[in-house]
Design a protein around this nucleic acid. Structure first.
Lengths: 332, 332
DNA sequence: CTGAAAGCGCTAACAA
DNA sequence: TTGTTAGCGCTTTCAG
């Protein structure tokens, strides 16, 4: 059923119907007539036809690297809550960590598919920059900082610093770290930087073999922990870039008979459910993922409404949560 | 830029451009001309305008009860993989367990917003049925069985039965269960049924106080476990409807000094990450969530292509995974 | 194989 | 306030 047909049924003109669904420049009688006809027919206007005229789709593209991640789910949850409240729907693209799909989605979104984009990126290449600069719809970047773009991110360096310092303050003297690739500026570089800062402030150094680069999964965490911990001279504390990596490392420790926190303290960033219920509950930095999502959405909304670039960068706080993996009381 | 403008730049007619992006009834020279012009201008046709004529949106609505759930993420991942490969995008709606939002999303999708819908439902009301019957686009229901609709679900009863039987076969004689509301036919009713079947086959009975209904979160699992376990006469095994509930229950046991599996065996359904790395690794039934998603997507694709209702119901298998929470060897 | 022209369902001047 | 009308960007006959 289209608007003409429906207008006929309702006994009003097309324009009246259009006005009913839009500005509402309408007398009460017509309004009633239309409402009654909607009840009967279940008519609802075609969004495509609407978009073609008004150029708004009421769709926001959300690009994520993967779905089955506690943190990412929370971010999307935050986005969805804010955007839905304003009548926007989410066009969700899961790139499965495939950078080229990230690019192609951005290109797809560039023109007319969506009103705006929220990009949960991991790494930025030249290509990213070039595509991002060509976008004709507003974009907000979440989880990473990128000069010149709207973004909301976490204090990754601060969290890593605080966690490392916490262990050093408890008397640890042989710190080790399992991080992720520095190409990821947030979970990678910033967390390495925070760790290094705490270590050098304590007047310590980290031997090459105490610094491993891992992937984002448990298995990789297990493997890197094995490399670091199976040698003669072991570290006395281990900072991991993510909870998942730390859980993998703890699995190794359990098998190898390394006691946590007695033989080795462990801390990491993320505050995931697994970390809370793990064999040894994990000391971690809680990042406000849901807030990341809702803030990003609000930023986008601002651009969408005011039509003036916001161009600001938001940095979210973190909270250190001490659990058994770093010892409950001051040791040594 | 629109098609006319672009056609002029390319030096061909509108129709040629249209054909290029569609059937491709086109000579090679024109094709080349158009390709070159695309390179230069980055032109891509408006999807809205396309939809208005062809009535296809290349969008599939995916309705989920919540996002931050390991199982649901995996389902959506499966959906996304299959659908993206066929050029469809996901319009994701998170209802936050709000049944009315489920209904309103279905209504939104009913007419023209999407080409098809995948519904990850939890409970079905009269209203659901009425809206579902009015849908004009194909619908697939995932995770639940609903007579007369395409669905793909799990063998919830079988999994619950197998898990319970496993514990009883190991000598347990006082079984207890923490389930969820029976209004949820899959995670609720079916799992209760499976549990009861195993229990009665063993010639046992379950006292009222050994059967608790919980919500879907850890806290609730903790609380229900406390109710069951803090009395004098305790059960010797506990079946939980979900891993999350079981984890909550294990937390209580840990605090209360109840040893698992020595004092109490625990098993549950889901095979989540937390269960694998928990204080006591959890015996569980692995459900093929990702397959659920991809199968649902393939079912939808079939309807979308053939335009003939599939109307079948798929039931997925499960796998029992024995871990420490039920003892590694045969006890008693 | 090609282009002109008539719509798809809707919105927004415009004149009433 | 209202209805008429000319498009929005695209597809798809139809006649060449």
């Amino acid at each position: 059923m289209n608007i003409s047909e429906f207008a006929k049924i309702a006994g009003v003109s097309k324009s009246a119907v259009s006005r009913y669904f839009n500005d509402g420049y309408l007398s009460d009688d017509k309004r009633e007539l239309i409402e009654k006809a909607i009840e009967e027919t279940g008519y609802s206007p075609s969004i495509s036809a609407h978009s073609i005229k008004t150029r708004v789709t009421k769709l926001v593209g959300v690009i994520i690297p993967k779905l089955s991640s506690e943190s990412i789910s929370r971010v999307v949850e935050g986005i969805s809550e804010v955007l839905n409240a304003e009548g926007y729907e989410l066009l969700l693209v899961n790139t499965s960590n495939d950078s080229s799909k990230e690019i192609s989605s951005l290109e797809l979104f560039r023109n007319n598919r969506v009103d705006g984009v929220i990009l949960l990126a991991t790494m930025f290449s030249e290509l990213h920059m070039s595509v991002l600069n060509k976008m004709r719809v507003p974009v907000v970047i979440a989880g990473q900082r990128l000069e010149g773009f709207n973004c909301v991110c976490h204090d990754d360096e601060g969290a890593a610093y605080a966690l490392t310092k916490l262990m050093l303050d408890k008397g640890c003297r042989r710190p080790a770290m399992i991080g992720v690739t520095r190409e990821d500026m947030a979970a990678g570089k910033a967390r390495w930087d925070g760790f290094c800062k705490a270590v050098s402030e304590a007047g310590l150094e980290v031997p090459q073999r105490f610094a491993e680069v891992s992937k984002f999964d448990m298995e990789s965490g297990y493997d890197r922990a094995k490399r670091i911990l199976s040698r003669a001279k072991r570290p006395d504390c281990l900072f991991c870039a993510t909870d998942t990596i730390a859980i993998g490392a703890m699995q190794y420790c359990r098998e190898a008979g390394i006691r946590i926190p007695e033989d080795l303290m462990i801390a990491s960033v993320g505050d995931t459910k697994s970390g809370r219920v793990a064999y040894t509950p994990l000391t971690t930095a809680h990042l406000h993922y849901k807030t990341e999502g809702s803030d990003a959405a609000e930023m986008l909304l601002l651009e969408l409404k005011k039509h003036e670039p916001v161009g600001k960068s938001l940095r979210l706080d973190f909270e250190i949560i001490e659990r058994d993996s770093t010892g409950k009381c001051e040791t040594v």
